[in-house]
Amino acid sequence: MVPLTKGKTNLREIREKEKIDISTEAAVEIRNLDVYYGKERAIKNVSLDILKKKVTSLIGPSGCGKSTLLRSINRMNDLVDGARVEGTIAVDDRDIYSKDVQVSKLRQKVGQVFQKPNPFPKSVYDNIAFGPRAYRHHLRKEKGVFSSFKGIFRREERSPIDGRPMDQVVRDSLEQAALLDEIEEKLHESAIDLSGGQQQRLCIARCLATKPEIILMDEPTSSLDPISAGRIEDLIEELSQEYTVLIVTHNMQQAARISDRTALLWLGELIEMGKTEALFEKPEKEMTEKYITGRVG
């Protein structure tokens, strides 16, 4: 594992400048990141810190690399043919692109919510239990083969992540995602039949069930109606008590409403990053001002 000490000094500056609580730490540290798709350079030398238990939003015109940046934090870019990442990203002081990182373990800790709700064609219950069940194979790697068979004869299924009964995990996750009341009776019905907003909250609940530390959201409300979008925004504010949230949005009002910090990307470059109010009220860069007043983009 490669500890990234370089990031710390930077963090001190941020704390001082943005007058943030001295105990705040960075959940993700990105240094000199370049992402290429074939020959095209989609992210150009971006360095930034995402602080723990804060909501950070990424804004910028479409095609500027927001999703790309997001996907490189949980290594979903590995799945794209021809994608290549240079520079370092550290989660919990570990370089996630070093060879000995278990990608699936990383993705369990860094959850993602997609633009289009994508519940599996299974029951609501199975959707939420999916992550914990998939975790069983990590146990095999970490604690030996037999640990993965432990408890298969037990009547009550337990989550291998924290050992709690699966029923409880499911209910807690749904509760956290503010969905339990609506679909308590429909736990064993197909998730495909839920409404769009419910599906998206189900996807958030599904992500919470794996006990992530960081949640990445790529325009989670853009395919929803305004009311469902509003509920998801409320939910995100709730979540920031416990989780680090990084949200990509094309909607500046949304960014202003829900995020603590905001970063503006432009053609793959980081233009400015700072406290949300500061960025929207007195931006440092001319570019930022132009963008938020709608004169470009």
Partner: peptide, 20 residues
Amino acid sequence: EFRNGSLALGASKWWTIRRV
């Protein structure tokens, strides 16, 4: 989307194939 959804939850490739 199903594959990505599963992989993003930390499932391994084979698990994704088998379960999704």
